[in-house]
């Protein structure tokens, strides 16, 4: 009973079809509070499409997404985000013409008054060590730094549920390690879903992993369980691990 009460995100029969392509096909997925879940799978497995159905960026063909008892399938992204969900998309999605500080402030101010937003912005800048570039236009930053700014925007809004699509894409080893630390830190106060390619990164952060294959969930379990499963190794890990 306790486990059921703690389910914060659930999909039932979620499907997303593009013409004849079944990018996501009848996926039932459950996420419990304070979990840190990684979604993995080969290219074209449907992870990112699934992710976009959760965030409202795509309107699923069939099925439902329930976040804390609210049916969100087919809702606008801002309605999903309004539930207190922090979202980071695959490509750095930032306000290029604004400074680092303004970017993060815009995220924090949505939820808090001006004074508190300023405090949260400063905190996020400090946590991410963006102090030196706080007044730089984000459009002038390197790829990795832009990723950090976007993470800062997610943190500053203090979400209870965080959805991250490939947060380490284009990052150096060192930056990836820092991102892993940061995600573990966020996990103290929030439930997290991470879509990720980098196996080492997934191993370093996640207790529980969901493997996507051909638009469906192939298996769920710890990274050890998945890497020891011959079928899973064949579809995904075979070439890499």
């Amino acid at each position: 009973m306790k486990r059921k009460a703690h389910t914060v995100l659930e999909t039932r029969g979620l499907s997303m079809h593009f013409g004849g392509v079944h990018a996501v096909d009848r996926v039932d997925f459950t996420l419990r509070e304070n979990e840190l879940r990684c979604l993995i799978g080969p290219n074209g497995a449907g992870k990112s499409t699934f992710f976009k159905c959760l965030t409202g960026q795509l309107n699923p063909t069939a099925g439902d997404v329930v976040i804390r008892d609210v049916h969100v399938a087919g809702r606008e992204p801002h309605e999903v985000a309004s539930l207190g969900v922090g979202i980071k998309t695959q490509v750095p999605n930032v306000f290029d013409g604004l400074t680092v500080e303004e970017n993060i402030w815009t995220a924090a101010r949505r939820w808090h008054n001006a004074k508190r937003a300023q405090t949260l912005t400063s905190d996020a800048i400090e946590r991410l060590k963006l102090g030196d570039i706080r007044s730089t236009l984000v459009g002038n930053l390197a790829h990795g730094q832009r990723q950090w700014v976007e993470l800062g925007m997610v943190i500053a809004a203090e979400p209870w549920l965080v959805l991250l699509d490939e947060p380490t894409a284009g990052m150096t080893h060192e930056e990836t390690a820092r991102t892993a630390d940061l995600i573990r830190e966020i996990n103290h106060s929030a439930t997290i879903i991470v879509v990720e390619h980098d196996m080492q990164f997934v191993r370093s952060i996640s207790q529980h992993v969901t493997l996507f294959h051909e638009g469906a969930i192939m298996m769920e379990g710890t990274m050890e369980e998945i890497s020891s499963d011959p079928r899973a190794r064949e579809v995904y890990l075979g070439s890499k691990a």
Binding site: T55, Q57, E76, P77, H78, A81, S82, V85, I87, T89, N93, V94, F95, D96, G97, L98, T106, A107, R110, W111, M153, A157
Partner: peptide, 12 residues
């Protein structure tokens, strides 16, 4: 600057 991002920050 970026309408999608603003939406994802929960602004209508």
């Amino acid at each position: 600057e970026n309408e999608d991002r603003a939406e994802l920050l929960a602004y209508d």
